[in-house]
Design a protein around this nucleic acid. Structure first.
Lengths: 251, 251
DNA sequence: CGATCAATTGATAGAGGTCAAGACGCGTGG
DNA sequence: CCACGCGTCTTGACCTCTATCAATTGATCG
């Protein structure tokens, strides 16, 4: 609702994660001028709709947003959850239209930038260009991470671990987190049934990996969580790549 | 092996898909100077290795490459297949190291660009910057597409449909294509067993959706293929989004 | 023409989806 | 303050889809 007059990247706690990262003081001021306005939103408030013409990129200032894709059969799929410092709408650059509907999960605040202004400024400020490219690249990485997870347990433990690490990077507890979204939302995001989420969380609790109190989660055994996610610190022997012959290109 | 002296974007058939898209004649010449060399590679030749320091971005000129991620448990996952005009290494910008090992699937040719030079030039050439950003955004889109596919049949039909469309965009037949990669590679990419690929392809053949002759595939019923992929042209009622209240932000 | 790798086919079992019922939490109104 | 209703979460029973194991066939290549 209420527009916050103060929208200063310089004073934003997320400046070391978000677009301003690596941009020096004077240049950040130029960036600040592009940030049109902040808005407080509440659970269910829509930021942008799938199919709408792409024009703006958003940055999460606080709270959480989710991006929902509705396929032509009418089924919803949650593409991702957006935490403070993360950009929304990067996947819309290519098709020039938003690919998902983005909605506030909790009471949240958002920054708004005109894409054209952002790219124009990034030609002036190399550090801004670099950071924007990094964030786009990160978007590819995050999406690709789903290729590795096979079983439901891997998906869920990977999700919890990933979320904990993202919160930790933002100054929150590394071991305690709140799943502000519903089980159904998590299920939709991970491509599984909500019932399975319930059962798996229960199993992880009985395994002493997690402690669960409704939506509050405590990570009791982080190494175990990581191992279950399929990323345990085993020696990377690359055995299966033994056949690969290094090309003359790099040899 | 042999280095091709002629590496002209201007004369490349992929210029309307690849980085030069939208860049005017004079500026393309500048871009050409960054393209260090072309190399012919053969099946199994390694372009870059997971973990290597990121420095270069590659563009496929002909043939096909695959990107393989080896997790810490030693399991391989094929992140994607790269067709002519597509860039390789975009996911390495953020972590400054390649995330996957990229290998030639067939005899292929590659262009090589220094990332720093590319970004420097893109500050000079807005059209190049725009196209580079578009391709990064496309990378996010492509990865996100996997969120929608649930069943093995959806994944496989989606994969075949997507591949056919990409070949079509490159001037090949829209209905006939060759799966140059192995069934095992397809399976790894889609997160399923190679046996399942076999069985599903057989089923799609018996349904008269596809005709299969070893690695050659003919799409007999494209609408059916699309429908099976979970993207059939049903009216998008957005029923399930009825609760969503459009925020004051855009209202 | 054997050797090797890729692909198919069959049998089996288990992971996880679906359906259905009940428990819990929470806000609203009497 | 309690009852009611709604949405969320859990739990159980069942069944399907797909992975796995194993054997065979087909293709490719020195």
């Amino acid at each position: 609702m209420s527009s916050i007059s103060e929208h200063s990247c310089s004073h934003c706690a997320m400046s070391e994660i978000c677009l301003p990262m690596g941009v020096d003081r004077q240049d950040i001021k130029k960036l600040e001028h592009l940030v049109k306005s902040d808005h407080i939103q509440h659970s269910g408030d829509v930021v942008l709709r799938q199919g709408d013409a792409f024009q703006k990129v958003y940055a999460v200032k606080s709270g959480m947003y989710k991006s929902i894709n509705v396929d032509t059969e009418g089924h919803e799929h949650i593409i991702g959850f957006h935490l403070p410092g993360e950009l929304i709408g990067l996947d819309a650059i290519y098709p020039k239209a938003y690919r998902n509907t983005t909605v506030a999960v909790t009471t949240s605040v958002l920054c708004e930038l005109e894409y054209d202004q952002l790219t124009a400024l990034s030609t002036e400020i190399p550090a801004l260009q670099q950071q924007f490219l990094r964030l786009l690249s990160k978007g590819i990485n995050d999406s690709n991470a789903f290729h590795k997870e096979q079983t439901a347990e891997q998906k869920l433990t990977g999700f919890v671990y990933n979320l904990a690490k993202r919160y930790e990077a933002r100054g929150y507890s590394a071991s305690e987190l709140v799943l502000v979204m519903t089980r159904q939302d998590i299920a939709s995001h991970l491509g599984m049934a909500a019932e399975t989420i319930s059962r798996l969380l229960k199993r992880l609790q009985s395994k002493q990996v997690l402690a669960i109190n409704s939506r509050e989660i405590t990570i009791l055994d982080e190494p175990a969580l990581l191992a279950l996610a399929g990323c345990e610190a085993a020696p990377n022997t690359n055995q299966t790549l033994h056949r690969l012959n290094r090309s003359s290109l790099n040899g």
